[in-house]
Simulated assay, not measured.
Amino acid sequence: MSETSQVPTKPVAVPRGIAALVGANSALPVWRNELGGLTFRIDGQRYLKWAPADEPELDLAGEAKRMTWARQWVRVPHVLEQGADEEGAWLITEAIEGRSAVDPRWVAEPETACLAIGQGLRMLHDTLPVTECPFDWSVEHRKVRAREEIGPPPPVDAVVCHGDACAPNTLLAEDGAVAGHVDLDALGVADRWADLAVAAWSTEWNYGPGYEQTVYRGYGIEPNPERIAYYRRLWDIT
């Protein structure tokens, strides 16, 4: 698994549309993903995500719909505004009180963070209603973009998946409890292992080896090697 999303370490040029919308000096860059998307903190109370117009995989309009739907049952950001111009699209949300599981505060306590990642994912899966979910993240949906076939999927244990359950997307309160989830642009119905396999895998490059089992323990499940291997391969090729 490769991951190049990170907190910017060099100056970030604020897109013109964002500068006009909130002011260049008000936009503090806090995250850059591998597809060129940017996240800014604005006014200390809101976050603004920006996606370049030439990157169709970053669907902020779709993410706004998913968050609005999921927020009926779980704690995810409240959508304040969504729009686009010729340079790109943006999404403004209210901040959730809490820190990313990869904040230095929690990187220093990986056992606590990884346990919370598993607990938060279990809460998400147990709470969001599959029969009411209008969004799809199934193998069939994702294979449209696959570069190769990976064989038939294992039997599906359907839940509403986060869609990008990597460690940074779980927020923790100061006591280590789950505070919420962010980055829901792929949320949809799928096998629970599509989330679990990636969530546990992501601990390797955020905290180092040895914490996968902590995620499974937090979730309350024994690892399923067949499903883990399948969904990690699917993640890599989609």
Rank of each mutant, 00 (worst) to 15 (best):
L60D: 00
P110S: 03
R147Y: 01
T127M: 07
T203P: 08
A24M: 06
D195P: 06
P56N: 10
G163T: 11
P56Q: 12
K49D: 09
D164N: 14
Y219N: 04
G36D: 13
L115W: 10
A158S: 14
G62H: 07
E109F: 03
V189P: 01
R41Y: 01
A53P: 11
G176N: 09
V130L: 02
V182A: 05
Y47D: 12
G17P: 12
R227G: 02
Q72I: 02
A101W: 00
T170H: 11
T131Q: 15
V182R: 05
R147Q: 07
V156W: 00
V7W: 01
T170L: 14
R105Q: 14
P155H: 05
A113K: 06
A20T: 11
T127E: 05
V30N: 03
N25M: 08
F40C: 06
G188A: 09
A167E: 05
I237C: 08
E174T: 13
A61P: 00
Y47T: 10
S26V: 09
A173C: 11
S138L: 08
Y230V: 03
E111N: 05
K49E: 10
P153V: 07
E174V: 11
P209N: 01
Q213F: 01
P154T: 12
H162V: 04
V22Q: 12
W205I: 03
A51F: 02
L60Y: 10
R32W: 00
W50G: 12
G98N: 12
E132Q: 15
R105V: 14
W235S: 09
P134Q: 13
L184G: 11
I237R: 00
W90N: 01
R192H: 10
N33Y: 07
D195T: 05
L91I: 13
R46T: 12
K49P: 08
E149W: 12
R71A: 15
I221T: 11
P168E: 04
G98W: 08
G163H: 14
W201Q: 14
R147T: 13
L38S: 10
T112C: 11
G208A: 07
N33F: 04
I96Y: 04
S138Y: 04
P77Q: 13
A53F: 12
T170E: 01
V22I: 14
P104T: 09
L60M: 01
I228R: 12
E34N: 14
G83W: 10
V7T: 14
P52K: 09
D54C: 00
